[in-house]
Computed example of a mutant assay.
Amino acid sequence: MTQSLEKALAFHCAPALCGLKPANLICCPHGQYRDLERQIEALDEQLNPERIHLRLLCRCEKRTLLLVYRQDLLERHLAQEKVSEFLRRRGYPGGGLEDVLHCFEHRLAQDGDFPHEAGVLLGYPLADVEGFLKNKGKNCKLCGYWKVYSDEEQARKLFSSFTRCRHALCAQIAQGKTLRQVLIAA
C-alpha cells in the first residue's frame, strides 16, 4: 500500500483521526491513488480497533467521497437533543448512526445540491450549520475549517488546535510511520 492515501488522510482528516471532532470528509480524485477501494478497505480494517472507520459515501466518474469518523464520538454527537432534532427536521430518520449515514449517502446520490447538513455529521457547531443554511454560505464572521456564524473566538481556538493536530500527524507520517502506528501510540 502506498502511503499517499495515508498522507492525504493525515492532512485532511487529522482532527477526526485524533479525536478532536467526530468526522471529516475527504474527496479523493480518481487516478491519484492506486487501487483506492482496496486501500480504503485495508485502512478501515487497520483502524477499526481504534473505533475509527472509513466509509466510502459516493463515487462519480471523477472522484470518491470518503467519510472518516470516530464511531463513539459521532454517535454521542448525533444523540444530542438539538442535533437529532435538527436532523429530524431535515428529514433524517430518528434511528442510530447507521440510519443517519445511510440517509446521508442517499442524499449525496441524488442529483441537485450538496446536503449541507453534512456539517452536523462533521461536528460543526449547530448554530454555524444553521447559519450557513440560512445565509446560503454568505455573510459569515470567519472562514476556516468551516464557515462560522456564531462563536468566532471559540472557532478560532478550535481551528488552531486542528492545525496543530494536522501538523503533528503529518510530521509523523512523513517520518515513515503508518496511521495505525501513530494512533495506537497516542
Results as ranks from 00 to 15, higher is better:
Glu152Thr: 14
Ile40Pro: 00
Gly176Ser: 13
Lys141Asp: 07
Phe11Glu: 14
Glu61Val: 01
Leu122Asp: 01
Asp44Trp: 07
Lys134Glu: 11
Val68Tyr: 03
Arg156Leu: 14
Arg156Asn: 05
Leu122Glu: 01
Leu17Gly: 09
Leu54Ser: 08
Asp151Gln: 11
Pro115Trp: 11
Leu142Gly: 03
Ala109Ile: 00
Arg166Cys: 14
Cys103Tyr: 03
Lys138Asn: 08
Ser150Asp: 15
Asn139Pro: 00
Cys58Lys: 11
Glu81Tyr: 02
Leu108Gly: 05
Arg89Met: 07
Ala185Thr: 11
Tyr145Trp: 15
Gly19Pro: 11
Gln110Pro: 00
Asp44Ile: 07
Val148Leu: 02
Leu142Phe: 07
Leu36Asn: 06
Asn139Gly: 04
Arg55Ser: 09
Leu9Asp: 12
Arg55Thr: 03
Leu57Pro: 06
Pro93Val: 07
Leu158Ser: 10
Lys147Gly: 02
Tyr33Thr: 13
Gln154Lys: 15
Phe159Trp: 11
Arg51Ser: 12
Gly123Val: 10
Glu41Leu: 13
Cys143Asp: 03
Gly123Tyr: 01
Leu183Arg: 09
Ala14Tyr: 11
Leu133Arg: 03
Cys170Met: 14
Ala14Gln: 06
Val68Gln: 01
Gly91Asn: 08
Leu47Val: 13
His106Gln: 15
Leu169Tyr: 04
Phe162Glu: 13
Phe11Arg: 14
Lys138Leu: 12
Ser150Arg: 09
Val182His: 09
Cys28Val: 15
Cys103Gln: 13
Ala155His: 01
Lys136Ala: 11
Ala109Gly: 15
Lys157Tyr: 04
Leu121Met: 07
Ala109Asn: 14
Val100Asn: 01
Gln39Cys: 08
Leu101Cys: 12
Asp44Asn: 15
Arg59Ser: 13
Ala171Cys: 02
Ala16Gln: 06
Glu152Arg: 15
Arg38Val: 12
Glu85Asp: 12
Leu126Pro: 10
Ser161Met: 10
Phe162Ser: 09
Leu66Ala: 07
Tyr149Thr: 01
Glu85Ile: 02
Arg34Gln: 12
Glu152Leu: 10
Leu43His: 04
Ala171Val: 00
Leu57Phe: 05
Val83Asn: 14
Leu5Asp: 12
Arg63Phe: 08
Arg164Trp: 04
Glu81Pro: 02
Leu73Gln: 14
Leu126Arg: 04
Gln175Leu: 13
Gln71Cys: 09
Cys58Gly: 04
Leu87His: 07
His12Ile: 02
Gln71Met: 05
Asn24Lys: 07
Arg166Val: 06
Leu78Trp: 04
Cys58Ser: 13
Phe132Gln: 05
Arg156Met: 14
Gly96Lys: 08
